[in-house]
Design a protein around this nucleic acid. Structure first.
Lengths: 327, 327
DNA sequence: CCGCTGGGGGACAACGTTGTCATAGTGGCC
DNA sequence: GGCCACTATGACAACGTTGTCCCCCAGCGG
């Protein structure tokens, strides 16, 4: 800006006026300034501007588990969309389920003075955010709740979803329904397990420990588990998969197998309807989750001071075939 | 920092020293300062720091078409990964194929003084970036080349890929091979069309306009096109799909159809191997693309001044079944 | 001719940091 | 005791902006 001012033969304040379309600059002067700006390729430094004006940085921070996962990239897309409507940029990072990394990212974003923070928690401790929250930075947790702070949270109905899955399978005559879930220290995995258990009890088929296999899972652990489930005294005739990755592992393991158990997966995924048989899922909308969380964040930014809210989004069972196999 | 200094009874410079682990502060003083920092929840303002030090902002900008698309979210993930290793945050945004939006995002990122820019071009004009590039901001284009500037670019071998697809189908006896591509003003779509044409010529089956349908496509346009292709005098017996979305549209349109044409899709996608028949694709690696581009960007940041490079990443045909149907 | 008005423009401080340099005190050595 | 070296600390400017306040001067009315 200094250089522009020198080249145009005016003070930097006048350049500032031109750049900001402020009134009170003679057209001929403005023209000289614009020419200088063009010639020098000047671009206003937003950081300096925000610093001086004490205004918001126009950014929001997004910490999620893995942008590469279609579920989270759907969330990201929705967040971006709304942020854009409100004139904000999104800075994002993946924690890979590492609490340390989550914290590092969140605090880094705070150092950059983001206007707000959206976090898919990896860990259970979030008191590190208390100073920021007290300082007025709104924080919304999504997909999973915060560990040890009370804050806005947007979840999906994990328990209701698995209850429904089990109920659905039981209605088709299954009494030996297995559950393959993610690592039990992950909130959603644990909730879904609870839903599974409740569903079993409600259906009157009882909860049997030997039908449950919590993760972390990979392709081979799923394969082993399935073998165990099918060779036990009373084999499982149906499976509830705890998330989209596990569903896919199961599908791979079952590829080419003649006698397939019924299957209901948590999380919808592309092409589920084109497989044979098409896969019945508990669907919930990544973009709805992102939207709800971002809306909440902006409500806070708009001055909403009401007590922290917990929003639970509904899920719905989408019957496609794999879950409608009779026992 | 001012408040911290006041509370600790020292000058702000001393606080700065403590925050930056600079030597020459008495342990007892440092302790007082740390206590004050803790009590006030102070967090250093990175913008101000970077402004003062004239150092990099530690961010890189990523403009892509749509984070929600698994291909681009794979790219994003790879970019993030490498940026992280080099201590940078990623700011990203989706252009939705809108050149105006692409420009807006890129310039916004420049205003934020990103250290470098990664762009999946939506438009054909990128001279708006010339001032930035001259000012030393490295820019790498990925997936598609820049319109009217010479710059680093990382592409995949679109032509080679479709040539291979056609050759593969012709080797299985097909002589009526159709091509469904994206809108022809999209670079990759156009290249793939060229590859298709060249493949036809090389295979000695000739290029026939009526077998080509360029987009933009949606589910219904694909359906109509397929009907046309199958009811013409000499029906198409094989199809090359120009990208992953189109492949999926075709799969949906063909669901339940008995007499299926052979199919090779450009872009691999999850579960392609579990469909029946499994889908033969031209695969290329999103994360390799992201990694190559980011590596190139960092090489520039490390001072590499060699002339702009154009990297073309290989693709490979993955036969799975849908492309090995004999005519 | 004087004073007032208002448009056009500039000087300066400040945002939150950090780099540079100065200074006060302390202890050791001749 | 005087001087030096060294440690601990602070004052101040500057990064690139913008908000505040002030000034100059032309034009106009009396």
């Amino acid at each position: 800006m200094n250089d522009v001012a020198r080249l145009a033969g005016v003070s930097i304040k006048t350049v500032s006026r031109v750049v900001n379309d402020e009134p009170g600059v003679h057209p001929s002067t403005a023209e000289r300034v614009l020419a200088a700006i063009d010639q020098l390729g000047f671009r206003r430094n937003l950081s300096a501007r925000n610093l001086r004006r004490g205004s918001s940085t126009g950014t929001i921070g997004l910490v999620l588990e893995d942008v590469g996962n279609p579920f989270y990239s759907g969330v990201t897309r929705a967040v971006e969309e709304i942020a854009r409507l409100r004139g904000r940029q999104v800075i994002s990072g993946s924690s890979d389920e590492d609490p340390g990394r989550e914290r590092e990212l969140a605090l880094e974003f705070c150092s950059r003075r983001v206007d707000g923070l959206l976090i898919v928690p990896a860990g259970l401790q979030h008191s590190y955010l208390v100073p920021e929250m007290r300082a007025g930075t709104p924080v919304v947790f999504l997909d999973r709740p915060a560990g040890d702070v009370v804050a806005d949270t947007v979840l999906v109905d994990n328990i209701g979803g698995t209850v429904e899955a089990v109920t659905h399978l039981a209605a088709h005559g299954h009494r030996r329904i297995a559950f393959l879930g993610d690592a039990p220290d992950i909130f959603t995995a644990n909730e879904r397990l609870r839903g599974y258990r409740e569903g079993c009890v409600r259906a009157g088929i009882g909860y049997h420990e030997e039908l449950v296999a919590m993760g972390p899972h990979d392709e081979s652990s799923v394969l082993t588990t399935l073998q165990r489930l099918q060779t036990m005294r009373e084999p499982a005739t149906a499976i509830v998969a705890g998330n989209n990755r596990i569903t896919v592992y199961i599908l791979r393991a079952l590829a080419g197998v003649a006698e397939r158990p019924a299957l209901v997966g948590f999380d919808d995924f592309e092409l589920a309807d084109l497989l044979s048989p098409p896969v019945t899922v508990i669907a919930h909308d990544a973009s709805a989750l992102g939207k709800a969380a971002t809306d909440l964040l902006f409500a806070r930014l708009d001055g909403d001071n009401s007590p922290p809210r917990r929003v639970v989004l509904p899920v719905r069972l989408v019957p496609r075939g794999s879950g409608e196999v009779h026992a």
